[in-house]
């Protein structure tokens, strides 16, 4: 069976799995914002930090591949868009010659993209969807208009829904193949039957998921968490602050170090 657990929760017994998801979500938001401001040395400090996070979480390096793959696709996509669109900076001759030659700012852009993806993956690998959605609901309860919207729940539902649909698509393909319908023979016929079966499945899935949720007492209310923060959460915040201060001032520190050497 195909493993479609890309970017999904990795159950482990690590201290990082125990941090409150509200803290993780908040820190991740700040982290992403900070990432957008950083360059060169700062980004490297962040990168090292992220790798450490993965290491301490016992997630396993193969799990990182999915982010890398996605990063490569995204980067290629962005680069292609840039090639086919009018160059914003006509003086950047290198860029017009070949897109394999990346300018410093483009490299930084791609590096950031990878780091953003990895950070997101880390959050999702160390918290269950239920925890994340609960955290989202916890923050929303402070926003008057959104208080009653079960956004966290919708998030959770759709996150479970799409891998499921993907799995269904694979099943339909298998069923078609086992009854001798392959795209090579007659692509239009293949596509027609596939989309027909897929749409039916999707609609039925939606219907049944609501039934299944209702039958197990789901009432569609947001479920914010009000549990008090623990000691490890405080430590996490502290480590985060130190880490990002180091990243923010790394160019200056680097300069000082180099000056001392001279």
């Amino acid at each position: 069976m195909v493993n479609i657990g890309f970017w999904s929760y990795q159950p482990r017994l690590s201290p990082l799995h125990c941090i409150d998801s509200r803290v993780k979500l908040l820190l991740l938001t700040l982290h992403n914002y900070a990432l957008l401001q950083l360059h060169g040395a700062g980004l490297c400090v962040v990168a090292v930090g992220i790798l450490l996070l993965f290491w301490v979480s016992h997630i396993g390096w193969t799990a990182l591949l999915s982010s890398f793959k996605m990063g490569v696709y995204l980067a290629l996509f962005v680069l292609l868009l840039q090639v086919f669109s009018v160059p914003r900076d006509p003086s950047d001759v290198l860029w017009q010659v070949s897109f394999f030659w990346l300018s410093y700012s483009q490299l930084t852009y791609i590096f950031r993209l990878f780091l953003l993806l990895l950070s997101g993956q880390w959050l999702i690998s160390t918290s269950t969807l239920a925890q994340i959605s609960q955290a989202v609901d916890s923050f929303l309860q402070y926003i008057p208009l959104l208080r009653r919207v079960p956004l966290g729940w919708l998030l959770r539902l759709s996150w479970g829904f799409f891998p499921n649909l993907y799995h269904n698509a694979l099943q339909i393909q298998a069923a078609q193949k086992s009854r001798l319908l392959v795209p090579q023979n007659n692509f239009r016929r293949y596509l027609r039957y596939f989309s027909q079966a897929f749409m039916t499945k999707a609609i039925k899935k939606t219907y049944y998921i609501t039934l299944a949720m209702q039958s197990r007492s789901f009432i569609g209310k947001p479920q914010p968490s009000n549990a008090p923060l623990q000691f490890c959460d405080m430590v996490a915040v502290l480590v985060f602050v130190v880490w990002h201060i180091a990243a923010r001032y790394s160019p200056q520190m680097l300069a000082v170090l180099l000056l001392q050497k001279q």
């Binding site: 269950t128 039925k204 197990r216």
Partner: peptide, 23 residues
């Protein structure tokens, strides 16, 4: 349900079994 394919909601088994209790 007759067909568990339509009944499972959680991402992992643990999450799915806990779903009703959570509600």
């Amino acid at each position: 349900f007759q067909d568990p394919e339509w009944q499972l909601i959680g991402e992992t088994v643990r999450e799915d079994i806990g779903f009703g209790l959570e509600n």
